[in-house]
């Protein structure tokens, strides 16, 4: 988001940690956190689909809490830490939740997926053995138009099992 000198509004010196890395940038107060992550930092895995807080596609973790990045101004994340889908796992090293979504076909077009993953990861941390009802409740703030949610629910169950199994393995 380049802004020429002449149009420069009053900027705010923002410093925050994103996926473990300190990022510093001067931003306009009105810049939404979602736009900052996507366009200023190039972390385009965070998707924007409604910008009024209903769809959940833009969910990121702010100090570990899942929040709508379209309803938070970037300046409000000053001094805080943000984790985006890019911070969960990599193509050759998928996070167990990501791996479960692949196994259970919890992804179709994939547009809502990053926001679902960033919602499910903290949910499973609090609910290691969730019921289907709890899972659906946890997903209620994430709209998906492709899957009818069934394979997503299955993926969350699978992830819970996998993570539980991994935790039960004695440490080497």
């Amino acid at each position: 988001m380049a802004i020429t000198e002449s149009t420069m509004p009053k900027l705010f010196d923002l410093a925050l940690t994103v996926n473990g890395t300190l990022r510093e940038q001067a931003v306009e107060p009105r810049l939404l956190l979602s736009d900052f992550l996507r366009h200023d930092l190039g972390l385009t895995g965070t998707h924007v689909a409604c910008e009024h807080g209903v769809c959940g596609a833009c969910t990121v973790l702010l100090d570990g809490e899942p929040v709508r990045s379209c309803l938070i101004f970037a300046v409000q994340a000053h001094g805080h830490s943000v984790t985006t889908v890019e911070g969960l796992g990599a193509v050759d090293r998928l996070h167990p939740v990501q791996e479960a979504f692949r196994q259970a076909h919890g992804v179709q077009c994939g547009f809502c997926t990053p926001g679902i993953l960033t919602s499910v990861v903290p949910f499973l941390a609090d609910h290691p053995d969730p019921s289907e009802e709890e899972i659906r409740e946890a997903l209620s703030g994430n709209l998906c138009r492709c899957t009818g949610y069934q394979h997503i629910v299955d993926a969350v169950k699978l992830a819970a099992q996998a993570m539980k199994a991994a935790n039960e393995q004695p440490a080497r």
Partner: peptide, 17 residues
Amino acid sequence: LRNEDARLLTGLAQFVD
């Protein structure tokens, strides 16, 4: 299992925006 998933799951898949 789907070929395209790993990129979609890690936020690397490129959409128009």
